[in-house]
Write a protein that binds this DNA or RNA. Structure first.
Lengths: 146, 146
DNA sequence: GTAGATGCAAATGTTTTGCAACTAG
DNA sequence: CTAGTTGCAAAACATTTGCATCTAC
């Protein structure tokens, strides 16, 4: 796990503590490799440790966001979290049929971002844009049965 | 009101009915000119007609979305609705400091959409994309006081 | 020992649903 | 008339909070 020592240090700097629950949540975030909901993280942990509470998951995710270790995106009325250290800067394609999230490298969006800046002085975030649409499979499925 | 007759026709085609509640919600959507939450629409109506229920607002908004007369975007954990007939196809720039939504013509995004289709077979929605970032004013304000 | 963290239960806020009563066509 | 619609109340979600208990340090 690449960032546990960073976590520990960040906690200590603030007078906060490394608990087994926090370790477990960080480990799960590594395992899941992105786009997990709080509920999904919680379920994985409860399987082994039934006493874990979902409020602890939320509190830890909030903490990790504050420490800039976890990013959060808001799709389809729910939040999904991912460890920032696992992937480079990227955006998301959100399939509004199957709910799948695809990653797109940040650079693919660069021309658009420059265009918008020129057009209206708007400085688009260089990461975590969510583009809704249809993924390839769902697009075909819809085309076949209209 | 430009689209009431279209609404009536679409309803009749499906054996559905035009009720005073549906008329009222459509009228409010015209008045509000975009980006209203269900709660905001509900409040406006309750002021004159206290018996209206918010579930009727949700049901009508869902219906209008199904009829492609209303679009829905998901920003900052809440949904906002707008009448599609009021503006041409467009996307949104969402300033995450002041919360303002700016409209961008759909054509400005066309090159990106084609690029994504080529890259991963993803068919991005031609409308209602939300791009978070900083509007010109907030960008300057932030630059001055870091 | 003690500030900080946890688990529990209950509150929150938003959206959805079941259902009996009502009404547009 | 009657299928569709409404208002109401309650459920369903996702998320947050208050608090007594517990624990990392």
């Amino acid at each position: 796990m690449c960032c546990e020592s960073r976590f520990l240090e960040a906690l200590h700097d603030r007078g906060l503590r490394l608990t087994p629950q926090r370790e477990r949540i960080l480990a799960i975030l590594h395992e899941m490799d992105g786009h997990a909901t709080a509920e999904q993280i919680y379920e994985r942990i409860v399987a082994q440790n039934p006493s874990m509470d979902i409020s602890t998951v939320y509190r830890t995710l909030e903490l990790l966001q504050m420490l800039q270790m976890v990013g959060c995106i808001d799709v389809g009325g729910q939040r999904r979290y991912e460890l920032l250290s696992l992937h480079g800067a990227h955006h998301h394609l959100y399939c509004r049929i199957c709910g799948q999230l695809l990653r797109v490298e940040a650079q693919e969006m660069q021309p658009l971002i420059e265009h918008l800046a020129q057009l209206s002085g708007f400085e688009a975030d260089p990461e975590h844009l969510i583009i809704p649409g249809l993924c390839e499979e769902c697009r075909h499925r819809v085309a076949v049965s209209p």
